[in-house]
């Protein structure tokens, strides 16, 4: 109980802080905290879609390692390093909140207290892990081993969610978004950590190219890129559908998103398979 109390106090402290931020406080007061969070989820999701597109575009220059390395040089500037680090915020927020939504909607965890505990607990683990990596600096982990574990966990999670949502009357596309969400929960957060195990892992063309020669890593990357593009694409469409009324507009928007996602999937595919 004492623990509960601590968490409550901590949460209260956060909400009070939040409630004092000018813009957010109005919405927290008029529509509730969950409404503000829903907007944050939406914004972070859209932001991540944009990032992934940029990311795939950058990665596509792996075909000419010099160009890739030149681009990656940018990241030695402080400001870009900072941005790279800041990226962890939308990633972890969207991932954990997405997990919360899946638990709320599909697993019947309607109790906010428990949810908060989960989110806080997992965030702490993530932050600790990240910090540990950074302190330890150069280290090595077999990518194979790392990704095997990540993939096993992710697939199990995806399977768990799939078996839960499969029998609801929601559309297949909707179900897949939840399933890919569950799959990405570990995959994306792990990806971010992995790429920072030491500086070269994510930023040196040679190291990257070496790694992705392995068949298993190729499979992992492909699973990642397809899941993300599906999930993000459906997310964008879902936002668009909230505002579009006519059937024609809705279908044209769907077509447009599918085309864009297929193009990026193709770029991703090519780079994984060809490099």
């Amino acid at each position: 109980m004492a623990e509960d109390y601590e968490i409550k106090r901590f949460r209260q402290a956060i909400t009070t802080k939040l409630a004092n931020v000018p813009f957010i406080s109005t919405y927290a007061k008029t529509r509730g905290r969950a409404y503000v969070i829903a907007w944050c989820h939406r914004i972070s999701g859209t932001g991540l879609v944009a990032y992934v597109m940029l990311h795939i575009y950058t990665l596509s220059s792996l075909e000419t390692p010099a160009e890739f390395n030149a681009k990656m040089k940018l990241f030695s500037f402080f400001i870009f390093r900072l941005l790279e680090w800041l990226l962890a915020i939308p990633v972890i927020f969207h991932a954990l909140n997405g997990a919360r939504l899946i638990l709320y909607e599909s697993f019947g965890c309607r109790d906010d207290e428990t949810m908060t505990r989960w989110v806080l607990g997992l965030s702490a683990v993530y932050v600790l892990l990240m910090g540990m990596l950074m302190i330890m600096g150069n280290q090595s982990v077999t990518p194979l081993f790392f990704w095997l574990i990540a993939l096993i966990i992710s697939t199990s999670l995806a399977y768990l969610v799939a078996s839960k949502v499969w029998h609801s009357g929601t559309s297949i596309a909707w179900k897949f978004q939840r399933i890919t969400g569950a799959f990405l929960l570990i995959m994306v957060t792990a990806h971010l950590l992995f790429e920072h195990i030491n500086p070269s892992v994510g930023h040196e063309a040679g190291v990257v190219i070496d790694r992705i020669q392995h068949f298993f890593i190729k499979v992992t990357d492909l699973a990642l890129v397809i899941a993300i593009l599906y999930h993000g694409g459906y997310g964008l469409l879902s936002i668009a559908k909230d505002y579009l009324q006519s059937k024609v507009l809705k279908s044209s928007c769907a077509m447009l998103i599918i085309v864009i996602m297929v193009i990026f999937a193709w770029i991703g595919l090519r780079l994984t398979l060809l490099v």
């Binding site: 529509r31 969950a34 409404y35 939406r42 939504l101 909707w174």
Partner: peptide, 11 residues
């Protein structure tokens, strides 16, 4: 499927 569990309704 238009609901994003923003829970403003409950609020």
């Amino acid at each position: 499927s238009r609901c994003h569990s923003s829970m403003a309704c409950t609020f």
